[in-house]
């Protein structure tokens, strides 16, 4: 479903990704862990198409298409979804208007009929119930004045509405208490399926107790330093990230 080859990228003057290779097949959940500054968020931004990140070498193929050629909105319509680490507050634009515009943009692209106000309301109510979000958030401006947990739930709500084929969760657990974490994780787990790929980016192992990955990769200094199964996350929890720097790079690749 997604194939990343020798990806190099920079933000501003700094080269942050220095050659990432990663293949994600349908049905797989991959976790990316790593210390701060290792390039985790840059990777998610490259995949979602953030204009401030510049790809300098390498390729990303998604369902046989060159993902890097697509505009952010085209990627979203093709089923790529990024749950933001810091969801943006947008005063003056109501959540309901935004969600409906978003859902209908995807539906148009898929050749499906757009939802009218009533159908949309029915759909969004159902999805909101699943993420335990009060309906009043529909009438609020996008993320404006939302707590950290409410913002993250709003992200998961959007994901549930758009039903992406490939979802990236960037630090979905940051700033969440255990209840909110469970709600977010449940939302993600509901979407898991044979046709869907997921990339879960996290600093801590905690989230991976709730969203159990098939593969874990450790990112350090812009490269994947080591990969393994879900047990790698536990090892990292015990040993921290310090040991990565001491082991020779060649031995870690795998």
């Amino acid at each position: 479903m997604l194939e990343i080859k020798n990806l190099h990228a920079r933000a501003g003057e700094n080269e942050i990704l220095k050659g990432i290779d990663l293949t994600i097949a349908g049905g797989e959940v991959h976790a990316i862990m790593g210390p701060n500054g290792s390039g985790k968020s840059t990777l998610s931004n490259v995949l979602a198409g953030r204009p401030t990140v510049e790809v300098t070498a390498g390729s990303v193929t998604y369902d046989g298409k060159n993902l890097l050629e697509l505009e952010p909105e085209e990627r979203a319509r093709e089923g790529v979804f990024l749950a933001f680490q810091y969801p943006v507050e947008i005063p003056g634009v109501t959540n309901s208007y935004f969600l409906k515009a978003s859902v209908n943009a995807v539906r148009r692209h898929r050749g499906e009929e757009e939802l009218d106000a009533m159908d949309f309301l029915q759909l969004v109510r159902e999805k909101m119930k699943a993420v335990e979000m009060d309906e009043k958030f529909l009438h609020r401006a996008i993320n404006e004045g939302f707590s950290g947990g409410e913002k993250k739930r709003n992200e998961i709500l959007q994901m549930a509405l758009l039903e992406p084929r490939f979802a990236i969760l960037d630090e979905a657990d940051s700033g969440l208490d255990i209840d909110a974490l469970r709600i977010v994780a449940d939302g993600v787990n509901r979407l898991r399926g044979p046709d869907r790929g997921m990339l879960v980016i996290t600093h801590y192992q905690r989230l991976l107790e709730y969203i159990v990955p098939d593969f874990v990769h450790v990112l350090a200094e812009g490269r994947i330093a080591t990969s393994g199964g879900k047990e790698l996350a536990l090892e990292l929890e015990e040993r921290g990230y310090g040991w990565l720097e001491t082991e020779p790079k060649g031995a870690a690749a795998g």
């Binding site: 198409g49 953030r50 319509r77």
Partner: peptide
């Protein structure tokens, strides 16, 4: 904010319109 809206499938033109309207609202 523009990137956020575009990452949700809303095209750039419409996203600009939404943000502009939001500013006025």
């Amino acid at each position: 904010a523009l990137f956020y809206l575009r990452s949700r499938a809303i095209d750039e033109h419409e996203a600009r319109g939404l943000l502009t309207r939001g500013f006025a609202r």
